[in-house]
Simulated scan of single mutants.
Amino acid sequence: MTLLITGARGQIGRAVVERLHAAGLPVRAASARPAEPTVPAGVETVELVLDRPETFAAALRGVRQVFLYPRPGGIHDLVEAAEAAGVEHVVLLSSSSVLAPGAESDPLASHSLTVERALADSALTTTFLRPDAFASNSLGWARSIGHSLPVQLPYPDAHIAPIHPEDIADVAARALTGDSLTGRSLTLTGSESLTFREQLAVLSDTLGREIPVEHISRAEAEQQMGRHMPAPMVGSLLDLWEGANHGPAAIGETTETLLGVPARTYRQWARENAAAFTAE
């Protein structure tokens, strides 16, 4: 029974491949560019492109379980191909944003919601993993911190419960190898609520130097962020942070509650990634 892991170039997909391979399970790593993923020796790589249905058959041959990234383009064709190939269970890396009001029209949530609905309407058994903010989102501050510049934030006291990406991979691997999580919809978080200011204080302590925080206006943030992402996505993200500005973030499911293993902390993530915040 082969397990197909899509998005094998991503941090979660790659980590899931490594876990399953280490457990001695037959793993196939799928990517739109299969020559690029770095996978353990002995792991088969295959091309899978959602808008090219001709890539589906080889990727799905002999597969019973799939770890899926939420790409809406071509998802209905993929679901049909998976059903025809005998796939039984799909674990989707979705997002907690699908639970927010207006998710259908929200650019941050709608793509995950589209994939969730396509799977829910299928004959496939599905497990939805809905992580909240990744701890690794902090890498967006790396350039400023590395060059000893202030980190500019419109909502420095917005609360999130950042989850370590390795925790997501642990839950995904369990969902693919056991039945305790099968068919469930799980909102995944870290075990503590931290404001952006508090996260930066952890990074400051880890790096052993001050990280100044500069409060900027929403308009200034829109201008800065708009250089790197579409305006609707900028607005959605800023709305999310504004809404998180009024109290601690809710703690969802963690590796503690799901796997009986303490959740990795934000401080642990900061120690593991300290080098990323040092200018080259």
Rank of each mutant, 00 (worst) to 15 (best):
E18A: 14
R19P: 12
R19N: 12
R19F: 11
L20I: 06
L20P: 02
L20C: 04
H21D: 13
A22S: 15
A22E: 10
A23E: 01
G24Q: 03
G24N: 06
L25Y: 00
V27G: 01
V27S: 02
R28P: 05
S31C: 00
A32S: 11
R33S: 12
A35S: 06
E36I: 06
V43N: 00
T45G: 07
T45C: 09
T45I: 10
T45K: 13
V46P: 06
V46C: 10
E47F: 01
L48D: 08
L48A: 03
L50E: 02
D51A: 13
D51K: 14
R52Y: 01
P53M: 02
E54K: 11
E54I: 12
E54H: 12
E54L: 07
T55L: 12
T55D: 07
F56P: 13
F56S: 13
F56C: 13
F56L: 15
A58D: 12
A59Q: 06
R61G: 11
V63N: 02
R64C: 03
V66F: 00
F67R: 02
Y69E: 01
Y69M: 12
I75E: 09
H76S: 12
H76L: 06
H76I: 03
D77K: 00
D77P: 00
A81H: 09
A82Y: 04
A85G: 07
G86D: 10
G86Q: 04
V87K: 05
E88T: 14
E88L: 09
H89C: 10
V90L: 08
V91P: 11
V91C: 06
V91M: 04
L93I: 14
L93P: 10
S94G: 13
S96T: 15
S96E: 15
S97R: 11
L99S: 09
L99N: 08
L99Q: 07
L99E: 12
A100L: 08
P101R: 01
G102F: 04
A103E: 15
A103Q: 15
S105V: 15
D106M: 04
P107Y: 11
L108A: 10
A109D: 05
S110Y: 00
H111D: 15
S112Q: 03
V115H: 00
E116R: 03
E116N: 03
R117Y: 00
R117E: 07
